[in-house]
Design a protein around this nucleic acid. Structure first.
Length: 803
RNA sequence: GCCGGUGUGGCGGAAUUGGCAGACGCGUGGGACUCAAAAUCCCAUGUCCUUUGCGGGACGUGUCGGUUCGACCCCGACCACCGGUACCA
């Protein structure tokens, strides 16, 4: 007989809900454990089988920690602002709010049906004004501290759609919807000064228990590089420009300079003779999208301005060129070109027949640029030095002569924070008719989104909010007219701090009680997809550091330990997608196999970080295991099995204690697949036994309960308990039961196993050697050979070197 | 191109970090139970060679080489796939 999952699961889900089993006591005396999931965007498609992968992992940890005596915070919420709802509203005329609310209801029902142990009293939603009040409050603080500013930034403007598009909505320079052309257009935008935190974001990565590859991605994104800024004067002009270089040691090899096409000096320095050539080139570059520009990059292009810079180190004249391989957005938008020792400059110089000078020996400049280390030549006071010394000597020289200095540059740019959208947090700013700008006073927060009859693009590039009366304000004191900011915040905003609000979700007076934050931060384990490795995690760290600086949060970093789960692929090893028709719906699995099976299977598929294809056979196997567990405990008649008795059975000692040890350790380190396989080993052994000690069987149910909580609760009840298993103490193991008195020792000859001998667990080296050499098989094998050496690893093996 | 990761049976994956490769699950084959089937239980299952049989042997962790008594594990070179990034001066 097998168990009725539909009945059992409903029963315990109702029990948990009624008794509020998973309610967290914010101010508990117990030690805390904060297990966080990346909250989902509630799409119309409902939960995907990928969601329960990480959610089950954190749920298992949460359930184990509760049993280990921790106060566990394990919350869930909704990243509920977002593009699809707005697009849906534009397409159908329906409200994005109602649409999102109904999606949330579906997600929540599905999560409850999987049996996640969330404290639903802490549910939050980024679109809830009670929540975004504090998102707006944080923005105001950033603004007050000078970290939010307005700038002209080029955006993707699509005239045919009358709107601004996000990068992911632009494909090959055309709009994703309709395939209309998209242009770069500068618009007034809000920007957050994340670059002010670049160094701290980089340095503090060191202390985090995150996967190394993910830290690397953040390091690369921040892209710190050390070098020097060098000042060049322009021949015949009372002007100078700075360049950034990581190789100031090669300054003697700089034979020309290059400006980005957008560099402000270009129009001023260009000579009459070169004017039309330069204008042609600028025009050519302007009409190209970013994508075409990178395509173009395979072949370098550029044009001479006619002007010359003076190399400060040797007063040589260097022609100034314009080329789009120099980016206005990095460094100073101008470079000194050292074709002998930079691949890009080499390629450019070769194409336009500019001089190439060797200043570091070791390469063959007739073939390629040499970027390696070597003795400097043709460099006066640097001659004979290697790169490192030459760099610092040159920086000294630059500083002494007042033409440059040591400089650090980052790849990281400030964060474009405004979206021309309706469905997002309004930015709490008012622009007054006298040209001033103020923030919305705290007592007027939250500044709520107006209900709108119809959401459609304004046509001016502003958000649909510009169509509403909501934008117009009059100062009640002065009568001055003003206009509200029509830009809204990006989806990232709400997710930058949601884990703080879970700690104190209903607080009307502050973001969260500082005492509570002190208890619960940092998050102990945060699991989510690798797609958020850079942006979400970097933005959240930035806000957290800012909140730390203004004394709102007590820790420098939000997430101590982070883990990226893998992806679940379709049965054909392809990404699941509607168009391929290989999407597995969790609802179907819950109904056919049960939530416990779904949880068990997803955890058993492979390591949490791996991407593995869904397998219906594997799913059946998971269910089969749970059935075997059931039959081990429950007789045909539905009563507790007669084999389970209050008596010892020495034959179970080892496997039980091993199982407790391995499951406990593996859960802790997120190796759920091997923990489950150990539980299978226990059940296989149990099936061979006539007597099953009740202690052990209860311990096993506890070990299983985080993975298959419904089944475990049911078995726990059948074992004669009235209360939930949730807070029963986690089993302990007895180290002494793990070792057997007599163990098997492998005997190798030249590293190959030839025989096995039995020996006492603490047999000495000499004993083992003697026993091994006395073995019949071994005697045969070494017959006629000389034993050169015998290596003995006590408790493991004996290796005989003989030839 | 650069950075990071991975590579083990028919499949998903184990292997205490240098010590018996293939745990556990799936699949497959055989058997038991059954009138029969499903379910369940038991046995076998890396490849090749050898033996009537018991058994025995060789090879084997992407490829080639190295270190070591001993290598999936360490070192060097290469190949393939996955992720990130894109002229970052």
């Amino acid at each position: 007989m097998s168990f009725h999952h539909q009945e059992i699961e409903k029963k315990w889900q109702n029990y948990w809900e009624e008794k509020k089993t998973f309610k967290t006591d914010t101010y508990s005396e117990k030690e805390k454990f904060y297990a966080l999931d990346m909250f989902p965007y509630p799409s119309g498609a409902g939960l995907h089988v990928g969601h329960p992968l990480s959610y089950t992992a954190t749920d298992i940890l949460s359930r184990m920690k509760r049993m280990q005596g921790y106060e566990v915070l394990h919350p869930m919420g909704w990243d509920s602002f977002g593009l699809p709802a707005e697009q849906y509203a534009i397409d159908t005329g329906n409200s994005p709010k109602d649409f999102t609310l109904s999606n949330i209801a579906t997600f929540k029902r599905q999560m409850k049906e999987i049996g996640f142990s969330y404290d639903w009293d802490r549910e939050i939603s980024t679109m809830d004004p009670k929540y975004y009040k504090w998102t707006q409050w944080i923005f105001k603080k950033l603004y007050e501290k000078g970290l939010a500013y307005v700038d002209e930034v080029a955006v993707n403007w699509c005239p045919a759609l009358n709107t601004v598009l996000a990068n992911e909505e632009v494909i090959d320079g055309k709009s994703e919807r309709g395939g209309h052309p998209v242009y770069r257009k500068p618009m007034r935008q809000w920007v957050l000064k994340i670059t002010a935190y670049a160094d701290r974001l980089l340095e503090d990565l060191e202390e985090l228990d995150w996967p190394e590859n993910l830290k690397d991605m953040q390091r690369n994104w921040i892209g710190k590089s050390e070098g020097a800024e060098v000042r060049f004067s322009i021949d015949g002009h009372d002007k100078h420009f700075d360049v950034f270089t990581t190789r100031p040691d090669t300054l003697f090899g700089a034979t020309y300079a290059v400006f980005a096409p957008e560099h402000p000096y270009v129009k001023e320095i260009v000579t009459e003779a070169q004017k039309s050539a330069v204008e042609d080139y600028l025009h050519k570059v302007e009409t190209k999208s970013d994508l075409e520009r990178t395509d173009l990059a395979k072949d370098k292009t550029g044009v001479f301005t006619g002007a010359y810079a003076i190399n400060p180190v040797n007063n040589e004249k260097m022609p100034i060129w314009i080329a789009d391989y120099v980016l206005m957005s990095y460094g100073t938008g101008a470079i000194m070109a050292v074709p002998g020792h930079d691949e890009r400059d080499y390629e450019f110089a070769t194409k336009f027949e500019l001089p190439i000078v060797e200043v570091v020996s070791g390469g063959d400049l007739s073939a390629e640029a040499y970027v390696g280390d070597g003795e400097h030549v043709n460099s006066e006071f640097l001659n004979g030095l290697h790169n490192e010394e030459a760099i610092s000597k040159m920086i000294d020289w630059l500083e002494k002569n007042n033409v440059g200095k040591k400089q650090i540059t980052y790849r990281l740019r400030d964060w474009l924070f405004s979206r021309q959208r309706y469905w997002g947090e309004p930015i709490p700013i008012i622009h007054w008719e006298d040209g001033t700008m103020t923030t919305v006073p705290d007592e007027e927060l939250p500044l709520e989104l107006p209900e709108m009859e119809e959401i459609k693009p304004s046509g001016t590039g502003e958000s649909p909010l510009a169509n509403s009366d909501w934008v117009n304000v009059i100062d009640p004191k002065t009568g001055m007219k003003g206009r509200r900011e029509t830009n809204t915040m990006p989806q990232w905003a709400g997710s930058c701090w949601y884990f703080l609000r879970y700690i104190d979700p209903d607080n009307p007076d502050q973001l969260a009680d500082p005492e509570a934050l002190k208890k619960w931060l940092p998050v102990d384990i945060y699991i989510g997809g690798a797609e958020h490795a850079v942006l979400h995690l970097l933005y959240a760290r930035f806000w957290h550091k800012f909140l730390y600086d203004i004394d709102v949060v007590p820790t420098k970093e939000p997430f101590m330990k982070l883990f990226n789960q893998g992806m679940i692929l379709g049965e054909g090893n392809e990404k699941m997608s509607k168009s391929k028709g290989n999407v597995v719906n969790p609802d179907d699995i819950i109904s056919s196999h049960g939530a416990d099976t779904l949880r068990l299977y997803e955890m058993f598929m492979g390591p949490l970080e791996a991407s593995v294809a869904w397998s219906t056979n594997g799913l059946d196997g998971a269910r089969r295991f749970l059935d075997r567990v059931w039959r081990l405990f429950i007789s045909e008649e539905g009563a507790l099995s007669g084999k389970i008795i209050e008596e010892e059975n020495k034959a179970m000692d080892k496997v039980y204690n091993e199982t407790v040890k391995k499951v406990t350790e593996d859960f802790e380190t997120l190796q759920f697949n091997t923990a489950i396989s150990q539980m299978m080993v226990f059940v296989n052994e149990g099936n061979k036994q006539e007597k099953l000690p009740k202690d052990y069987m209860e311990g096993f149910v506890k070990l299983l309960s985080p993975v298959a909580p419904h089944l475990a609760e049911e078995l726990w009840e059948k074992l004669g308990h009235e209360d939930t298993i949730t807070y029963e103490p986690w089993p302990a193991y007895d180290e002494t039961k793990l070792v057997e008195d007599e163990i098997e020792i492998a005997v190798q000859i030249m590293g190959k196993v030839r025989a096995k001998i039995h020996a006492a667990k603490d047999a000495t080296k000499e004993d083992l050697e003697e026993q091994a050499l006395a073995n019949e098989k071994i005697k045969e094998q070494i017959e006629g050979k000389t034993v050169r050496k015998v290596i003995v690893v006590p408790g493991k093996l004996v290796n005989i070197v003989a030839n």
